[in-house]
């Protein structure tokens, strides 16, 4: 077989196998580059916490909440009130830092108030529910977890820990789309996390071969036209 014919044949057959995946790769890549990663992360959905001094006078001593079983304690402000987030042997807990009262697990009203205080967008809460199983968009996060969906553009959703009252994750449809196209990009259709799967490894090298044979074919594609033009003149 002549070389140009061989180049055409290999490129054609490799492209038959890889063509659709090449479209998936480039279109998903285009989405991931065109929408800024800060937008994907939903940074615009939450208010930046403004640091304000906390009056330590009158606060319960942090070591006294779970005596002998405390791993770590964090003092922060939630809804304008100082709170302690304690990581202890029995688990994580939230305390009122002034009275020492146990606040966790927080109920629906407390979760709603916190979600509204974190949320930077317009529009109210559409739906609030306590999930016992983590949906795939927050897999690996501890459950139960409060899911608070807002009425804004792209279904903005905040996830709040009932144990600590903290914002755990923020999601919206641009993130969900990113996650969906990422699945096609790394070809892990189950977990969407394994970048070393065999399918991807084989497909990427086949893509190398497809593009290289394409380059090989280019050598003949242009020369031939120039000759034809000369013959025509």
């Amino acid at each position: 077989m002549r070389l140009p014919a061989l180049a055409r044949k290999t490129h054609k057959w490799l492209a038959l196998i890889m063509g659709v995946q090449a479209v998936f790769w480039t279109v998903s890549g285009l989405y991931m580059t065109a929408v800024h990663i800060d937008t994907i992360h939903g940074d615009h959905l939450v208010r930046a916490a403004e640091p304000a001094p906390i009056a330590l006078g009158g606060l319960v001593e942090p070591g006294s909440l779970i005596p002998g079983g405390t791993r770590s304690v964090k003092l922060e402000t939630q809804l304008g009130q100082p709170v302690y987030i304690v990581d202890a042997i029995p688990g994580r807990m939230l305390f009122d830092a002034r009275s020492g009262e146990l606040l966790s697990p927080i109920g629906e009203d407390a979760a709603r108030d916190r979600a509204l205080s974190y949320y930077a967008g317009v529009g109210g809460i559409e739906k609030i529910e306590l999930l016992d199983a983590a949906p795939s968009e927050i897999k690996n996060r501890p459950v139960p977890i409060w899911r608070v969906e807002f009425a804004g553009l792209w279904r903005p959703t905040l996830y709040i820990s009932p144990l600590t009252g903290e914002l755990v994750a923020k999601r919206h449809d641009l993130w969900r789309t990113f996650d969906f196209v990422w699945m096609f990009h790394i070809m892990d259709y189950e977990e969407r996390t394994d970048m070393n799967n065999t399918l991807l490894r084989v497909a990427t090298w086949m893509s190398v071969a497809t593009s290289l044979t394409g380059g090989w074919l280019l050598l003949y594609s242009f020369r031939r036209r120039r000759r034809a033009r000369k013959a025509g003149a």
């Binding site: 890549g29 070393n196 990427t204 893509s207 380059g215 280019l218």
Partner: peptide
């Protein structure tokens, strides 16, 4: 085309 080759090779190596 060269960038497509580079994307394929770099992607293959990262995989």
């Amino acid at each position: 085309g060269l960038q497509f080759v580079l994307w394929s090779i770099s992607g293959a190596m990262m995989a």
